[in-house]
């Protein structure tokens, strides 16, 4: 793959360098805010990483405005045993809450996908609450590239 030579890179950086300065600072959620949101959801119960839940996101997002996200939780999805809800939490957006998916036994399969905004490179967390009260967590880091003219 070709890359720019030093002089071209300098010129191009001057073109787009301003974007870096425009990136808002402060007012971002941090791991602490995300933790608070997590605690509100879990009621303070401990929650660990679990193989039952999968969170799929690209490793690198070309643009933070539209990043695909898919979750799936293993469950028979019967009235006796089903996934009640899955919360999505961001560690690096202005607000930690992203969305809560509410499932029912009628869902058949606990799978959902959407597209989310990512203000910067960060961890995204998904926690599932099952009908038996158990909690299951998955975490993904997504790198957000600060674009050139495109981004």
């Amino acid at each position: 793959m070709k890359s720019l030579n030093r002089r071209e890179a300098l010129v191009f950086s001057a073109v787009t360098g301003g974007l870096l300065l425009m990136t808002p600072t402060g007012a971002f959620a941090n791991a602490g805010d995300a933790m608070k949101t997590m605690e509100e959801f879990t009621g303070g119960k401990p929650v660990g990483d679990s193989k039952l839940i999968a969170l799929e996101m690209p490793e690198i997002a070309e643009n933070g405005n539209t990043v695909p996200l898919a979750i799936s939780v293993e469950s028979p999805m019967t009235p006796d045993s089903y996934v009640k809800r899955v919360i999505i939490i961001s560690e690096g957006n202005p607000r930690p809450e992203v969305a809560t998916f509410n499932f029912s036994p009628l869902s058949g399969v606990a799978e959902a996908s959407t597209r989310m905004r990512l203000a910067k490179t960060q961890n995204v967390i998904a926690i599932a609450e099952l009908s038996d009260g158990s909690l299951h967590m998955a975490k993904r880091q997504v790198k957000v590239t600060i674009g050139g003219c495109g981004g």
Partner: peptide, 22 residues
């Protein structure tokens, strides 16, 4: 209700949702 979403501003413009039903 088979499926619902409580949505916060971190969901992208022109919201997209995909889900399943038996």
């Amino acid at each position: 209700d088979i499926f619902s979403v409580d949505i916060d501003p971190s969901i992208s413009a022109n919201p997209y949702f995909q889900f399943k039903m038996r």
